[in-house]
Design a protein around this nucleic acid. Structure first.
Lengths: 251, 251
DNA sequence: AAGTGGTCTAGACCACTCT
DNA sequence: GAGTGGTCTAGACCACTTG
């Protein structure tokens, strides 16, 4: 009676809560439990799984720690809506009005310079986990803060998935990309990794940012990941190095 | 029978595990439970506190999450020794041999350029939480990687506490400062915050790093905190911006 | 008032480490 | 084998949110 599906065998070295978490993670990734909605209550999950409440709670805690779930006391447990405030602005301090923790982040205005499907470089295909022959949507845009261009961005988005953005009118684009990915393409971004480096701007990039050629710039290369942990966005952002300011916490 | 000391009153809105964690945090901060040593076993802590094992474990988990404790299955629960690998090198990629995750970090050689007690600036005194008239030890040093100077550092350390370093022979200084703080001054660094910005080097700093004046540089301003959460180290580090490379994870 | 997650108990047994 | 932390149970009751 050990291998019957649905029955809890003594487990092959994996704790019961970890196996439960695995199953529930699959439901989230598959969209069986949709983003932003409540999952069944702990009591029901425990009963269904045939485990004690504490065991179910431990499994849920693991998924909360992973960022897939959020608990709200008295209301329920919800599938994450993903990242919203992951703006590149967090790497820079523009203008006279810094926002000393309390005032809302000033949202920039974006203008799309270019948007077209093309073949990714081998390196890009590898990072996006794409098969040979796959296509991506490349988007270039400038982000302005009170009329001043401050960030120059290029995005690469795998194409079957992000097709809705290939045909969406530029005026319909939201300022916050990740909520838009969620609504238009059913892609939830839950994690991102930014690689920062320093360089100088070539003539074209400098012109787009209203700076002199050779101006010092910070380059941010981002990989963003969905619920399943797949890399689904590559992004390169340039900004004036003299506006660069970033706080890194250790531990 | 509610207010008797040692007896567990229903708590004034604070969970029992949170109150236990508070008491144990005090023991750690006070050095009653010394850094690196094991604390009493969970079973004993629970019995002493008059709570169930699960409650004691929840309190311990909170302290582990804070970074004050570390659990080792089968061996015990230990007070943290603090940060060790918080080197400024993590912000840079020097030389031909990158270390692609696996090879040990190449430890640089340091040379102390200056070391002397002085009065901190008002801003420094504020950040270190020092009273008027307090003194700090200022230390300047260059860090070399295979004979090449790569980092220029200035440290400010509050003086009654760091007195041992004021008289310690420069040759006796360790490469890793935080373990040395722990051994020589009984100060455990558990957290640090680094503020990154970009600028150019003045003539003196450029000379110390073997670069041309006006060379692009990354400036790292660090605040480091002890077990009690007090800021006990200020540090400013300069390095060639062209060697700068840093990975920031979101969520 | 009903339903949710959060706290807490008093055990039992398992997995790991060290002697 | 003794001692440690890790898992799990089957409850009870509390705190918060909503209708």
């Amino acid at each position: 009676m050990g291998a019957a599906p649905g029955f809890l065998a003594p487990a092959d070295g994996v704790a019961r809560w970890a196996r439960l978490a695995g199953g529930w993670r699959e439901r989230i990734v598959a969209g069986h439990w949709p983003a932003g909605e409540a999952i069944p209550p702990e009591s029901e999950l425990a009963r269904e799984a045939g485990v004690a409440l504490g065991t179910a709670r431990q499994a849920l805690s693991a998924l909360v720690a992973e960022g897939l779930l959020e608990r709200v006391h008295g209301r329920g447990t919800f599938v994450t809506r993903g990242l919203a405030q992951a703006s590149m602005l967090r790497f820079f301090r523009f203008g006279p009005a810094a926002h000393p923790d309390g005032s809302p982040d000033p949202v920039p205005r974006s203008r799309i310079l270019e948007r077209r499907p093309l073949r990714p470089s081998p390196e890009q295909a590898r990072r996006l986990g794409l098969a040979a022959g796959a296509r991506v949507l490349r988007v270039r845009r400038v982000r302005r803060l009170e009329a001043r261009p401050v960030l120059l961005e290029t995005l690469w988005l795998p194409l079957p998935v992000f097709e809705p953005l290939a045909v969406l009118a530029p005026a319909e684009w939201d300022e916050l990309l990740y909520p838009m990915y969620s609504r238009r393409c059913r892609v939830t971004i839950v994690r991102a990794a930014d690689e920062l480096s320093f360089g100088t701007l070539d003539a074209a990039r400098a012109a787009a940012l209203g700076l002199e050629p050779g101006a010092p710039a910070v380059c941010v290369e981002r990989e963003a990941f969905d619920l399943a942990g797949r890399c689904v966005e590559l992004r390169t952002t340039y900004g004036d190095a003299r506006d660069f300011r970033y706080r890194a916490e250790i531990r």
